[in-house]
Computed example of a mutant assay.
Amino acid sequence: MPEKLTTREKEVLLCIINGINNQEITNKLLISKNTAKNHVYHIMRKMRVHRKTQVIKKAYDMLPQMISDQGNQVI
């Protein structure tokens, strides 16, 4: 991933991986719907994908690298 995700984007990414939709993300993270959409957009842009399903696949594909980069802290 060329650009690193912010802490909040990582929280949103975990929600996406767990199948949580944007409305549920707003409730869980106490953010507005537009903020949730913006985080999802930035995650997809940084991961160079166009769909949430691609985000999930790429996140799982990148998991070993993410673990080693974070000193064994997943995302």
Rank of each mutant, 00 (worst) to 15 (best):
A59I: 12
T7L: 14
K28T: 09
L5Q: 01
I31D: 04
P2Q: 11
T7G: 09
T35M: 07
V12S: 06
E9W: 02
K46P: 01
L14V: 06
R8F: 07
N34R: 13
I20T: 09
K28G: 01
N38T: 10
R48C: 06
D61W: 09
D61E: 15
Q54M: 10
V55D: 03
N34S: 15
N27Q: 12
I75F: 11
G71T: 09
K52Q: 14
V74H: 00
L13Q: 10
I43R: 07
A59N: 13
E24I: 01
T53V: 15
H39N: 12
T53W: 13
E3S: 03
P2F: 09
E3W: 12
V12W: 08
M62P: 03
Q70G: 15
K46A: 00
N27L: 09
K4W: 07
T26H: 05
I56T: 10
Q65H: 09
L14T: 04
N72W: 11
K33N: 10
L5E: 01
M44D: 02
V49F: 11
K28E: 07
T35H: 06
I17S: 04
T7F: 14
I75V: 06
K52R: 14
Q73F: 10
T6L: 01
S68L: 12
V55C: 04
T26A: 08
K37I: 00
K4R: 15
L29H: 02
E3F: 11
L30S: 13
N22S: 15
K46C: 03
E11N: 12
R48Y: 05
G19Q: 01
Y41I: 08
D69Q: 11
K52P: 03
V12Y: 08
L5T: 00
T53P: 04
H39Y: 13
L29M: 05
S32F: 07
K28H: 04
K28Q: 10
K10A: 11
I17K: 08
